[in-house]
């Protein structure tokens, strides 16, 4: 076990955001978290990175792991004067360095070259396209050689080619580097293809187990209950 949630609940002004969430992630797992908007998926990731801590229940790490995090909504200050290279170096140092060492610069550039985005290294972050920014954030997350990689809707705002490249990279990290990955996604096929564990979430835990057991019409109807009530959605999967 590398990470365990035990009865984790979270409420804002008496409104439940998450209720009694319990699951376990082992080293090398690929967990996909699937649920509708507002189901608490991103909140779970923020608990793991420590950006939110006022929950009840326990979140237990085996050892405090190195975590790489690619947020869905980029909370960076758009007007902050910073280059793409600086953001990747920030992933190495966990600081905003006053002066970047030659070693950190070389390591960051090497990774950017591997990801085919070295050409944007000296560009201002505010000048990058959505896809380029997403890949820089991914580079920032993996440059620190994380034991757990948290991906929040990694395909948001990227084109099909970029999405394919990112999926290949994520597969490589999982299969070759044995990185534990937790991915929040709306994309069921991506979750089914990548992951060995699935968490269906709609403020409470609908299902936790393997994707082949979890992707059923019943589970998805429960997960996306608000959507299916309003739009008569059926999922065309086994009952």
């Amino acid at each position: 076990m590398i990470l365990q949630f035990n009865n984790v609940s979270y409420a804002i002004h008496n409104t439940a955001i998450l209720q009694n969430i319990s699951f376990e992630v082992d080293a090398g797992d690929f967990l996909s978290i699937v649920g509708p908007n507002g189901s608490g998926k991103t909140t779970l990731l923020k608990f793991i990175i420590g950006a939110k801590s006022n929950y009840s229940g326990d979140i237990v790490f085996n050892e405090k792991p190195i975590i790489g995090y690619v947020p869905q909504v980029k909370t960076l200050q758009k007007s902050f004067p910073a280059t793409a290279l600086e953001l990747v170096v920030n992933g190495i140092t966990s600081k905003w360095k006053f002066r970047i060492s030659k070693e950190n610069k070389a390591n960051a550039l090497e990774l950017l070259e591997q990801l085919n985005i070295a050409h944007v290294a000296s560009q201002q972050l505010c000048e990058l396209s959505g896809g380029e920014l997403q890949r820089i954030y991914l580079a920032r997350a993996i440059v620190r050689k994380p034991q757990i990689l948290l991906l929040d809707e990694p395909a948001t705002g990227v084109d099909l080619v970029c999405e394919k490249d990112m999926n290949e990279l994520i597969d490589t990290l999982h299969t070759e580097m044995k990185t534990t990955i937790i991915m929040v996604t709306h994309d069921w096929s991506s979750a089914y293809h990548h992951s060995n564990k699935l968490l269906l979430l709609n403020k409470e835990m609908v299902f936790f187990g393997t994707p082949s057991d979890g992707f059923t019409d019943t589970n998805l109807a429960r997960t996306f209950s608000n959507m299916s009530d309003h739009h008569n959605v059926t999922f065309g999967l086994k009952q």
């Binding site: 990175i49 950006a51 995090y69 980029k74 960076l76 910073a82 920030n90």
Partner: peptide, 10 residues
């Protein structure tokens, strides 16, 4: 200043 949420996570 750059990103409070990322800073908090570090």
């Amino acid at each position: 200043t750059f990103d409070a949420e990322l800073a908090l996570s570090d």
